[in-house]
Deep mutational scan, measured.
Amino acid sequence: FSITQFVRNLGLEHLMDIFEREQITLRVLVEMGHKELKEIGINAYGHREKLIKGVERLI
């Protein structure tokens, strides 16, 4: 299971460039909250919320 699959499953594949540029893996994403996601350029609250909720389902 990769970050690419995870992001695609959430319908947020347009954010993949950010994850690749910042070298974010699923392991790193698990540790990130709204503040960190915003810092790397994910400005939409809804997108950040989707990512965080998606990660919570993985754990």
Rank of each mutant, 00 (worst) to 15 (best):
G41P: 00
T25D: 09
L37W: 04
Y45W: 15
M32L: 08
F1E: 11
V55N: 01
I42V: 10
E13S: 11
E20G: 06
E56A: 14
E56Y: 08
Q23Y: 07
L12E: 01
K38T: 10
V55W: 06
A44Q: 14
L15V: 06
L58R: 03
R8Y: 13
E13F: 11
R57I: 12
R27S: 15
E22I: 06
G33F: 04
R57N: 13
D17C: 10
K38Q: 14
S2N: 13
G54P: 00
V30Y: 09
I18C: 04
E22H: 15
L15T: 02
G11P: 01
G33S: 07
R8E: 09
M32K: 02
I52H: 01
E39W: 07
E13C: 14
G54S: 08
I42C: 05
R27Q: 13
R48F: 07
L29G: 00
I42H: 03
R21P: 04
L51M: 05
E20T: 12
D17Q: 13
V7A: 06
M32Q: 02
L37Y: 05
I24R: 02
Q23G: 15
Q5K: 09
R48C: 10
E20S: 09
R48G: 04
I52R: 06
R57G: 08
T4A: 14
E22A: 09
R21C: 05
S2M: 09
L26K: 01
E31R: 15
E49N: 08
I24L: 07
I42Y: 00
G41Y: 05
L26G: 02
I18S: 02
L10E: 03
V28R: 15
T25N: 09
L15S: 00
K53W: 09
V28Y: 07
N9T: 13
A44I: 12
E13P: 09
S2I: 08
L58H: 07
R8M: 12
V30H: 08
I40L: 11
V7P: 00
V7Q: 00
V30F: 11
E39P: 01
S2G: 15
E22C: 11
M32S: 04
V30A: 13
V7M: 11
D17A: 14
F19I: 06
L29T: 02
I18Y: 06
E36G: 06
M16D: 04
N9Q: 11
H34N: 04
V28F: 08
E39V: 07
E13R: 05
G11H: 09
F1T: 12
L58P: 01
N43G: 10
F19V: 04
E13L: 10
Y45G: 06
H47I: 15
E13Y: 12
E20M: 13
E36C: 06
L58T: 04
L58Y: 12
F19H: 00
L15F: 05
G33Y: 03
G11C: 08
K53D: 06
G46I: 15
M16Y: 05
M16A: 13
T25H: 05
R27N: 12
E36L: 05
R21V: 05
K50I: 13
L15A: 02
E20Q: 11
I18W: 03
I24C: 03
I18K: 04
M32Y: 07
R21S: 08
Q5H: 11
E36V: 05
K38P: 00
E56H: 13
I3V: 09
R27M: 11
I59C: 15
L12C: 05
E31A: 14
E13V: 09
L10M: 08
L51Q: 00
K35C: 07
R48E: 03
F19T: 01
E22M: 07
I18M: 05
Y45K: 12
I24G: 01
